[in-house]
Each structure stands twice: as C-alpha cells, then as structure tokens.
Amino acid sequence: MLINSDFSRRAVVAREQYQWIASPQLGVERVMLDRIGAEKARATSIVRYAAGSSFPHHVHPGGEEILVLCGTFSEGDKHYPAGWYLRNPPGSSHQTASNEGATIFVKLWQMSVEDTHRVRVDTRDPQRWQREGDREICMLFSSEDERVCLQRLLPGARLFGDSIDGAEVLVVDGEVIDGAESYSRGSWIRLPGGSSSAIVAGSSGVTYYLKTGHLSAAVGA
C-alpha cells in the first residue's frame, strides 16, 4: 500500500478530508496520512480509540512516536491525557487502551535502529515552553537525524523562513493559512526539502507539531 509515498512532493490531508479506516482491532480506526507497506508499514496516521477499546500487547520493531490529541491514551497502568508526547524506541513493546476514548497522532517505523530514547513529555507544563523570537517552542526530541517540537505563533506570523529543509506539520490548535486555503486543527502538511512557503498562523494564532530533518533520508529510501 502506497499513500503519499513520494517524499519529494508536497502532501496535504485537511481535517475535512479524513477517511477513517478500521484497524484489525475492534474499536480502533485510523486515517492514513502517509504509508509504505501493508499492515506492518512505515506509516503516519491519526488513530482513534473508541471508549473502552484496547490493543493487545505488541512490539514495535521500527519504533513509535505518539502525540495525544484528545481524550486519554493508556499504556498498561500509565495514562496520558491530551498534550502528552511519547516516543518508544525500536524493539519496544506495550499494551494500549483508552477507557474514555482518545485520538492520537502516530508515526511508525521512522526511527534509526540506533535510537534507544524512551521519551515522555507533558506539553501542558509551562516550564517546557521557551520563547524564541516570535514564537514559543516546546522541544520534544532532537538528534542528528530529526528535530521534533510544538510551536505557538501569534496571528499572521509565518511558520517558516524563506527556504525549508523538509518539514512535517500537524495543526494541534487554531489554523494556518496557505494562500487561499486554510487548514484547521487536525490538518497535516508535509513539505519537501527546498520548498518555499508563505504559510502563516490564522486569526486566532496556531499551535502546531513540527518535525524537521527526517525527510532527506525518506527521499533516499
């Protein structure tokens, strides 16, 4: 299965374009944003757990990155409400569930085999945020291969400078404006290296997930 699999091209999935597809587990469904492979795939998805649903214990050979968007996501006896960022390295395993229901942003098979970092960040903690110029930044993970953060911008502020070295954006709150198009909470945008972009924060500002540095390796894969 190939979905938005050419990483040298711009890709956008707006919130209103979501197509929910059932997973093998009852009560768990997903929107496929990009994907290379069948059920065990290199994938970026929005995943929705119905209240009381669960996934049996499973292994992530290629690692897993999660941002909880709403509800409460659980790993065993650990519970993570909206705003938590989780990073499970290659070879890790867990049993997941949601008593109240949850929606999460998930990236699978996108980590180096040498990555051993297990990360848990509560982005609701004000001390996690630092001002840098015209924006506030909550750093989630940084390495030679990638940089992951949340950013907050005031209305009209530009997301990027003149040139982009590849970037992936998920609108967490508010909206962004790209020319005549607006993209609300839940919209996903992937911009290849060498792009130029005039995307700006909407009238109420924006909070967004930003991942950079990872697309050059994907293009060469």
Score class of each variant (00 low, 15 high):
206 V>Q: 01
64 E>R: 05
40 K>R: 11
168 E>Q: 10
86 L>V: 04
142 S>L: 09
45 S>A: 15
212 T>P: 01
44 T>R: 06
163 S>G: 02
68 V>S: 08
193 G>D: 15
1 M>S: 15
134 D>C: 00
10 R>P: 00
158 R>K: 13
181 E>C: 11
73 F>M: 11
146 E>D: 13
86 L>A: 06
52 G>V: 05
46 I>W: 08
198 A>G: 13
18 Y>R: 14
207 T>M: 15
55 F>H: 11
185 R>Y: 04
134 D>P: 01
131 R>L: 03
111 M>C: 01
49 Y>N: 08
182 S>C: 13
109 W>F: 13
17 Q>H: 12
124 R>A: 09
47 V>P: 01
27 G>N: 04
202 G>T: 03
59 V>D: 06
14 A>K: 14
118 R>A: 10
88 N>T: 06
176 V>N: 01
99 N>W: 03
49 Y>H: 11
167 A>P: 12
10 R>F: 06
131 R>C: 04
102 A>N: 08
135 R>D: 00
138 C>F: 01
98 S>R: 02
151 Q>T: 03
161 G>Y: 00
174 G>M: 10
195 S>Y: 00
178 D>S: 10
218 A>H: 02
34 D>C: 06
13 V>C: 14
170 L>W: 06
137 I>K: 05
143 S>M: 05
165 D>F: 03
136 E>K: 12
109 W>A: 05
16 E>Q: 07
47 V>G: 03
45 S>R: 15
160 F>N: 07
136 E>P: 01
216 S>D: 14
79 H>V: 10
152 R>A: 04
38 A>W: 02
137 I>N: 02
37 G>S: 08
138 C>D: 00
58 H>D: 07
118 R>T: 11
8 S>R: 06
39 E>L: 13
178 D>N: 09
90 P>K: 02
139 M>N: 12
157 A>R: 14
101 G>A: 02
70 C>E: 15
221 A>W: 11
18 Y>S: 08
145 D>F: 06
96 T>Q: 07
78 K>F: 11
73 F>L: 11
89 P>Y: 01
118 R>L: 12
43 A>R: 15
